[in-house]
């Protein structure tokens, strides 16, 4: 067991974990944060995307011990406003119907927030490239891209 101390969604947590425990397992099984989901076994799908010290990572491909001393934000901690409020990117996904079954959505939103942090006014192509590590099995990419552009305040002029 290795002791880890980190901040998750604004709260300090500390635990003894097996070094082989993946960050996604830690979040789901130890902290009960099941908003972050596991969609694949190969680190391809991006469903498990969270922010580690402010940048997006695939939490199935990070060990919990590697997050020691660091800050993690999951989909559950994204909206830091009063209860019931949504983060603007969450709002945009609702507005633009950016989800079908919703399984890829937590990862899509976390990646979109990272993308917009780095490039607040992306083109449609930049959105598609920036989201290339996130797969939607329902293939709802069109509305996902529209949601990200909407969150950036620039749906007008986007191609159908």
């Amino acid at each position: 067991m290795t002791k880890i101390e980190l901040t998750v969604d604004g709260a300090a947590v500390s635990d003894d974990v097996e070094p082989r425990m993946l960050l996604v397992q830690y979040l789901r099984e130890k902290l009960g944060k099941t908003g972050t989901v596991i969609g694949c076994d190969t680190s391809n799908c991006g469903a498990c995307t969270v922010h580690l010290d402010g940048t997006s990572v695939k939490s199935c491909n990070v060990l919990a011990v590697q997050a020691n001393g660091r800050t993690v934000t999951t989909i559950e901690g994204l909206a830091d406003t009063a209860e019931g409020d949504l983060h603007p990117v969450q709002e945009a996904f609702r507005e633009c119907h950016g989800l079908q079954c919703g399984f890829c959505t937590p990862g899509m939103i976390m990646q979109a927030v990272d993308l917009l942090g780095e490039n607040p006014h992306p083109t449609e192509e930049e959105v598609r490239l920036g989201m290339e590590g996130n797969l939607c099995r329902c293939t709802g990419y069109h509305n996902i891209v529209q949601s990200v552009l909407h969150a950036a305040g620039q749906t007008e002029g986007a191609t159908a």
Partner: peptide, 9 residues
């Protein structure tokens, strides 16, 4: 290389 998330790590 890979995608944004993997390039971060």
């Amino acid at each position: 290389v890979a995608d944004s998330q993997i390039r971060h790590r």
